[in-house]
Amino acid sequence: MSIESVVFAILAGVALAGGIVTVFARDVTRMVIGLAAFLLSIAGFFVYWKASFLGVVQLFVYVGGVLVLFVFAIMLVHRSTEGSPYLETRHDIASITVAGGLFIMVVTALKDFVHDPVAGAMVTGTDEVAAVLLGPMLTHFEMVGVMLLAVLVAVVIIVGGEER
């Protein structure tokens, strides 16, 4: 068993444990720590596969941005002295259906990469990512940017559009 596989096993273990804690923890601070561990180990996976750019971006956007905003929202909505916020759901069956469907979709999409190691060997270096994003994929890249801008404007209109 090489050192690489040990690292991989640790990362996978942390990711699984983080995911389980996120779903089953009763206390919301534990959930946040579980989610943080999960997102951090995903960043670790990117670094493990030599995609350091994606790893750092994962850290920046998800751990430093999305997770913090998430915690921020919970903290502002629920008083910290209450301990655990109201996190019950009445949509168990719908959630399971959506999660299962998403899982099948991801597995079908990634099936070819697992079986074909050549297709799995994607571009990983920062230069290659930049060359692909600003070369053949430039239109898609710009479209995503325009879409995100539209989303931001929509959020501003929905949240702050009221007349004072």
Binding site: S52, F53, F60, V63, V71, M75, G125, T126, D127
Partner: peptide, 21 residues
């Protein structure tokens, strides 16, 4: 590392979570 600048900016962002917790 080839992503040093981004690393320097991104990694300390994690400490916000510690402050909030």
């Amino acid at each position: 590392t080839s992503v040093g600048i981004l690393f320097f900016m991104a990694v300390p962002a994690v400490s916000v979570i510690g402050v909030m917790l």
